[in-house]
């Protein structure tokens, strides 16, 4: 009897693990879709991945005088810049690692990246995403990034 009980426990554990992994894959897929929109200058694809009413974009950086700066960017400004980018600008944000944590309807994704412009390395950092799972699936609620040029450990030394 005990054996059967543990068997079920173990199966339940495996099932849980599996569904957690599926959820994580889903979160990663939404974030990757955001960047497909970003690279293809497709604001509709981007809009389909964010929780539009409350979506917040912020950036953290260090100013030249060493001061820490937190700059919010309205979503419309982000799309202005994106759509006005010349088609030969060739921006490439390479995502180099995903760490995703999920609790119920809340997910957090810690995504390291390298930013390349016309084949030249520009900067690196981390995109920290918060996502919410509503009726139409996982949507990005906030995106805060960090930007730096030192300690980038370039994963991809060539473009």
């Amino acid at each position: 009897m005990k054996k059967i009980f543990f068997c079920f426990m173990f199966l339940g554990f495996l099932f849980n693990l599996n569904s957690q992994n599926l959820e994580k894959e889903e979160v990663q897929r939404v974030i990757e879709k955001f960047f497909i929109g970003f690279h293809e200058k497709d604001s509709l694809t981007i809009a389909s991945t964010v929780y539009s009413i409350d979506f917040k974009l912020l950036s953290t950086s260090t100013a030249q005088d060493g001061k820490a700066v937190l700059s919010p960017m309205p979503f419309y400004s982000f799309l202005n810049v994106l759509l006005q980018r010349p088609s030969d600008a060739n921006w490439k944000e390479k995502l180099t690692g995903f760490e995703i944590k999920i609790d119920g309807k809340l997910a957090n994704a810690w995504v390291s990246y390298e930013f390349w412009v016309k084949g030249n390395f520009s900067h690196c950092g981390v995109n920290s995403f918060n996502l919410f799972k509503g009726d139409d699936g996982w949507k990005i609620v906030t995106l805060i990034d960090s930007r730096r040029i030192e300690n980038c450990n370039l994963n991809s030394l060539t473009n």
Binding site: L44, S77, L79, Q84
Partner: peptide, 20 residues
């Protein structure tokens, strides 16, 4: 024109985007 509108809407809860 569009950026003037966006600036004027900043205090509201409505936003304007470039034609997708």
């Amino acid at each position: 024109f569009g950026q003037i509108i966006q600036k004027n809407l900043e205090e509201s809860d409505y936003s304007l985007y470039p034609d997708p």
